Amino acid sequence: MTSSPATRPTDGRAARWAGQRERRRREFVDAALRAIASHGPEVSTEQIAEEAGLGRTRLYKYFADAADLQGGIADRVTELITAELAPALNAGGTPMRMIRTAIDAHTRWLAEHGNLYRYLTMHSLSAHGRDAVTDVKTAIARNLTVLFERNLELFGASTRLAEPVAFGVVGLVESSTARWLENPGDLGRHELADLLATWVWRLLDAALRAQGVELDPDLPLPVPGEPLATRG
Results as ranks from 00 to 15, higher is better:
194 D>P: 03
7 T>Q: 03
54 L>A: 04
11 D>M: 05
51 E>M: 15
2 T>E: 10
205 D>G: 08
199 W>M: 15
180 W>H: 08
52 A>W: 15
144 L>S: 02
59 L>E: 06
6 A>L: 12
220 P>I: 11
154 L>T: 05
24 R>P: 00
61 K>R: 12
118 R>L: 05
105 A>W: 05
184 P>W: 08
107 T>W: 06
71 G>D: 14
228 L>C: 08
108 R>Y: 00
63 F>M: 03
180 W>M: 06
67 A>F: 13
220 P>S: 12
40 G>M: 06
13 R>Y: 04
168 G>I: 13
44 S>Y: 06
25 R>F: 08
113 H>G: 14
174 E>A: 10
208 L>W: 12
62 Y>R: 06
213 V>W: 10
88 A>E: 04
20 Q>I: 02
74 A>L: 11
73 I>C: 05
222 P>D: 11
152 L>C: 04
113 H>Q: 15
154 L>A: 03
226 E>A: 15
196 L>V: 05
196 L>H: 07
124 S>Y: 05
2 T>W: 12
90 N>A: 15
135 D>G: 11
33 L>M: 15
156 G>M: 00
106 H>G: 04
165 V>I: 15
70 Q>P: 00
68 D>Q: 02
56 R>V: 09
71 G>N: 11
55 G>R: 13
76 R>T: 01
8 R>L: 08
114 G>V: 11
23 R>L: 09
158 S>P: 07
6 A>N: 13
47 Q>Y: 13
118 R>Y: 13
16 R>V: 11
131 D>G: 01
144 L>C: 00
98 M>L: 06
105 A>Q: 05
189 R>D: 04
148 F>H: 03
141 A>N: 02
45 T>Q: 09
11 D>S: 11
207 A>M: 13
208 L>Q: 05
103 I>P: 00
7 T>E: 10
190 H>F: 03
147 L>M: 06
7 T>P: 05
72 G>W: 11
62 Y>G: 05
144 L>W: 02
45 T>R: 05
156 G>P: 05
142 R>F: 02
31 A>D: 02
77 V>E: 00
7 T>G: 00
66 A>M: 04
127 A>Y: 06
170 V>Y: 07
24 R>A: 09
177 T>I: 01
86 A>R: 09
113 H>M: 10
111 A>E: 12
93 G>C: 05
85 L>C: 10
166 A>S: 12
47 Q>H: 11
227 P>K: 14
201 W>C: 13
178 A>S: 09
89 L>D: 13
47 Q>G: 14
157 A>C: 07
208 L>F: 14
202 R>A: 12
15 A>F: 09
164 P>L: 09
122 M>D: 08
145 T>R: 08
183 N>D: 14
71 G>C: 07
151 N>Q: 05
87 P>W: 06
105 A>M: 07
171 G>E: 02
229 A>L: 15
114 G>L: 11
119 Y>E: 00
73 I>K: 02
65 D>T: 06
2 T>L: 12
119 Y>L: 00
63 F>T: 01
65 D>F: 08
170 V>N: 01
87 P>H: 07
116 L>C: 00
178 A>K: 03
98 M>P: 01
126 S>Y: 08
154 L>Y: 07
97 R>N: 02
230 T>W: 07
112 E>D: 15
90 N>W: 10
63 F>A: 07
121 T>V: 02
141 A>D: 01
188 G>V: 12
97 R>W: 04
163 E>C: 09
32 A>I: 08
175 S>H: 13
34 R>W: 02
164 P>M: 10
182 E>C: 04
67 A>P: 06
43 V>E: 06
